[in-house]
């Protein structure tokens, strides 16, 4: 097991009170596997990623029973140890590739920088060769010329490819992709997904893929974890979640996808209501106010139960027969 997170909670002390951004999240990930994390904006996806990189702001209060990465307890690390892990063992790609590259430097130099930090034995010739081969690997035409480009000279898709090259430069064991395709158009999105898949196979990386697009996650993930208001509401193998969603929220998300269920020009179904304000969370089930299946029972907080192969946080799972 490469990464094992048990009961991770993250809270922020603010002027308005305590904000619990993430509550009791647990998951595991092995080399070569992809975990797709799905959820609305503000449900704690990105904050969890930052916690895994040790980059939470100082105001964050983090608690966890165990966060183990490759035999290391991540939260025991000192800042200098973190710096050795970031970029080398765990690296990250971002939503907006255009702003994730430094506008003042050539992209080749930026890729080289992380090699300089993490592979000090490389000579400058070796580094340059490696940068060019990396750019070739991520599908950038004429890499020898492109190393001298600046970020603004590249398109969004190209910038994201450069970011990916930077992220895999030191062959990390875990790649965190935080909505890497959201800012790209659909055809480029498909290419980038394919690229990530190929690279993952080649380097045997584990990957955490955060998105709010179920279509994307169905394409790339092995396991899916659905988050709502800072909690995991359902997680399990990809096909199980996509074809037999048990939690009303997951099923709501799935039926909100434009697809075969909706008639042509028909109104897209949506989940009524909005995500709860994290300062005044509802008691009991977080999703209850928006749920069609709620009952008296939902006043209590449902536990995350393991049912067969998936984990569900709901008293009234739908498609119950397939759980038995």
């Amino acid at each position: 097991m490469l990464l094992k997170v048990e009961d991770l909670s993250i809270a922020f002390q603010t002027k308005k009170g305590l904000l619990e951004a993430v509550r009791d999240i647990s998951f595991e990930l092995s080399l070569g596997q992809t975990l797709g994390v799905v959820g609305e904006s503000g449900c704690g996806k990105s904050i969890t990623n930052l916690a895994l990189m040790g980059l939470l702001p100082d105001t964050a209060q983090v608690s966890a029973k165990n966060v183990n990465f490759d035999g290391l307890n991540l939260f025991d690390l000192k800042e200098s140890q973190w710096q050795k892990i970031r970029g080398k063992e765990i690296s990250m790609i971002f939503q907006d590739p255009m702003s994730a590259l430094n506008p003042s430097f050539k992209v080749g130099f930026q890729i080289e920088e992380s090699l300089k930090i993490h592979e000090p034995t490389f000579t400058s010739m070796e580094r340059k060769k490696r940068v060019i081969s990396l750019l070739g690997q991520v599908g950038i035409p004429a890499p020898e010329e492109r190393i001298n480009s600046y970020a603004h000279e590249l398109s969004g898709g190209m910038s994201q490819r450069v970011m990916i090259a930077m992220a895999i430069a030191c062959k990390p064991k875990l790649l965190i992709a935080d909505e890497p395709t959201t800012a790209l158009d659909v055809t480029i999105q498909k290419q980038i997904l394919q690229l990530l898949k190929d690279l993952q196979e080649q380097y045997e990386m584990a990957m955490i893929f955060v998105t709010h697009d179920l279509g994307v996650v169905a394409n790339i993930a092995d396991h899916i974890q659905v988050m709502y208001a800072g909690e995991i509401v359902e997680s399990g193998a990809k096909n199980r979640i996509i074809h037999h969603a048990h939690h009303p929220y997951t099923s709501g998300l799935l039926s909100s996808l434009p697809g075969s269920q909706t008639p042509f020009r028909g109104k897209l179904p949506s989940i009524a209501g909005i995500v709860p304000d994290l300062f005044s969370r509802p008691e009991g089930c977080q999703f209850a106010p928006r749920c069609d299946y709620k009952s008296e029972k939902c006043q209590a907080h449902p536990p995350l139960e393991t049912r067969e192969v998936s984990r569900i946080r709901c008293f009234h799972p739908i498609n119950e027969e397939s759980l038995k």
């Binding site: 710096q83 050795k84 970031r86 970029g87 690296s91 702003s99 992380s114 930090i117």
Partner: peptide, 26 residues
């Protein structure tokens, strides 16, 4: 606030390095 600062943090850059080599030129 720009993302490239976060990005270079995720590549393990030391804060001083980020300040003088990434932020200052901009």
């Amino acid at each position: 606030k720009k993302q490239y600062i976060m990005a270079s943090q995720t590549f393990g850059a030391h804060p001083l390095r980020i300040m003088f080599l990434e932020v200052l030129p901009n």
